[in-house]
Computed example of a mutant assay.
Amino acid sequence: MKIVILTLCLATAILAQEKYDAVDDDFDISEVLQNDRLLNSYAKCLLDKGPCTPEVKKVKDKLPEALATRCAKCTDKQKQIGKKLAQEVKNKRPELWKELVAHYDPDGKYQDAFQDYLKP
Rank of each mutant, 00 (worst) to 15 (best):
C71S: 09
K57C: 02
N91T: 06
K2Y: 10
P54N: 03
A68C: 07
L46G: 02
A86N: 02
R70A: 12
L118V: 06
G108M: 09
D116T: 14
D25I: 11
I81R: 05
Q80V: 06
I5H: 13
C71Q: 04
Y110S: 08
I3M: 14
K84Q: 15
E95S: 11
L38W: 05
A66F: 01
I14D: 09
D116S: 15
K98D: 15
K58G: 10
I5F: 14
A22K: 13
L85S: 12
K92Y: 03
L39S: 01
N35S: 08
L67D: 00
I29T: 06
Q34K: 13
D25Q: 11
L38Q: 08
K79E: 09
T7S: 12
K98Q: 15
L100T: 03
Q111E: 15
K60A: 10
Q17I: 05
W97L: 07
C74M: 07
L63R: 01
L8N: 02
L10H: 02
E99Y: 11
E31Y: 06
L100R: 02
L33M: 08
I81E: 06
D36M: 08
K19M: 14
L47R: 05
K92A: 12
K49G: 03
Q111V: 14
C52R: 08
L10Y: 00
A13D: 01
C9T: 08
G108D: 11
L38R: 07
M1V: 14
N40D: 05
A22D: 13
Y20S: 14
K73W: 08
K98R: 12
Q80F: 10
Q17P: 03
R93S: 12
Q17A: 13
L39C: 01
S41E: 06
A102W: 05
C74K: 01
Y20C: 09
K84R: 12
F114T: 04
N35T: 01
E65W: 03
G50Y: 07
I81D: 07
N40L: 03
K79F: 06
L67P: 00
L85D: 09
D26S: 09
G108I: 13
F27T: 04
A13T: 04
D28R: 15
V56C: 06
H103K: 15
K2D: 05
Q115A: 15
K90M: 10
A102T: 13
Q87V: 14
P64T: 05
K84N: 10
G82Q: 07
I81P: 09
P106T: 02
L10E: 00
K79Q: 10
A113D: 15
E65D: 08
T75M: 07
G82P: 03
A66L: 07
A68N: 09
N40H: 06
E95V: 03
L8P: 04
G82T: 10
A72N: 09
L8D: 00
P51F: 01
A43G: 04
K58T: 10
A68G: 06
R70V: 08
A11K: 01
T53F: 04
L39G: 00
G82Y: 03
E95N: 12
T75R: 01
L100A: 08
L85I: 04
T12N: 08
K60I: 02
R93F: 10
A102M: 09
A66I: 00
C45R: 04
P64S: 07
L33K: 00
D116A: 15
Y110V: 03
D36E: 13
K73S: 15
K60D: 04
Q111M: 13
